[in-house]
C-alpha cells in the first residue's frame, strides 16, 4: 500500500496540485501512516525532484510555485497530526528575511523566501526598508537560526552591516547565521562585513542556508562535547 501512495504524493508535488496533495495527506493519516513517513518518503522527494528539474530548466518558476503550494497544503494536514503526537516537524531551520533600510526592492528576496520555505525552512519575511533593530527583534522573538538580508542599491548595501551590528548589540550574533544577497552584493563584501555567507540566486541561497544549518549543528554538538 505504501509504495504507490508515496509515489502519488511525490507526483502531486511535482504536478503542483494542492488539493490532491492535501487529500493524499489525509488518506495517509486515516490509513494509519506515520506523518513523518509521509513527509520523508512521499512529499519531500517530490520537492527534491522539483528542485532537480528546475535546475535542469525542465520546470519553470510558476511550476515551482505550484509545487510549493502543494507542499504547504500537505504539510498543513500533517503538522496538526505531528503536534497531536507531540513530535516536531522536521524543520530545516528558522529564517528571518528582509530588505535593508532605505531600499524598496523585494522581488529577489521574496523568491529566496519562497524557495526556502518550499525546502522545509520556516521563513518570516519582514518586507522591505527594514531597519537593523527590527531584524534583531524578530530574530529574538522567533529564536531564528538564520537572518537573510537583501540589498539592491549601492547606497543601501552598507545597511547589511547595520543588521549585523544590531544582532551583535542584541547579543544574538553567536547563535545566528547571517546571509546576504542582492545585485550589488559580492562574496568579498559578505566577508568584509562579517556575514556568514552570500548567494547569488535563490537556488544557491537554499544550498547556503542548508550549509549554514550544518555548521550550526556542528558547533552546537562541539559545544555539548565541551
Amino acid at each position: 500500500m505504501q509504495q504507490p501512495m508515496f509515489s502519488a504524493m511525490r507526483q502531486s508535488i511535482i504536478d503542483g496540485l494542492p488539493a490532491t496533495a492535501t487529500s493524499l495527506a489525509q488518506q495517509a493519516l486515516s490509513l494509519g501512516m506515520a506523518p513523518l513517513d509521509a513527509i520523508n518518503n512521499g512529499f519531500v522527494p517530490g520537492m527534491e525532484a522539483v528542485g532537480d528539474q528546475f535546475a535542469k530548466a525542465q520546470m519553470f518558476l510558476p511550476d515551482m510555485m505550484a509545487s510549493a503550494e502543494a507542499m504547504r497544503g500537505a504539510m498543513a494536514v500533517l503538522e496538526v497530526e505531528l503536534q497531536r503526537q507531540g513530535t516536531e516537524r522536521p524543520m530545516a531551520g528558522i529564517v528571518v528575511l528582509g530588505t535593508t533600510k532605505g531600499d524598496i526592492h523585494e522581488i529577489g528576496k521574496q523568491l529566496v523566501g519562497t524557495l526556502l520555505s518550499a525546502n522545509g525552512f520556516r521563513v518570516y519575511d519582514l518586507g522591505a526598508d527594514v531597519p537593523g533593530e527590527k531584524f534583531a527583534a524578530k530574530a529574538l522573538e522567533l529564536s531564528a537560526d538564520i537572518v537573510g538580508v537583501s540589498a539592491l542599491l549601492t547606497t543601501t548595501m552598507r545597511n547589511q552591516k547595520t543588521v549585523i551590528e544590531a544582532l551583535e548589540k542584541a547579543g544574538l550574533r553567536p547563535q545566528i547565521k547571517v546571509m546576504v544577497g542582492g545585485a550589488p552584493v559580492t562574496r568579498r563584501w559578505a566577508e568584509e562585513i562579517g556575514a556568514d555567507g552570500y548567494a547569488k540566486d535563490a537556488m544557491s541561497a537554499v544550498a547556503l542556508a542548508r550549509r549554514l544549518m550544518e555548521g550550526k549543528a556542528q558547533s552546537a554538538s562541539a559545544a555539548v562535547l565541551l
Binding site: L153, T154, T155, T156, M157, R158
Partner: peptide, 12 residues
Amino acid sequence: MVCNDVPAEIGD
C-alpha cells in the same frame, strides 16, 4: 554610475 570611491551616503 554610482561611484564606489565616494561614501555611499553621498553617492546619489
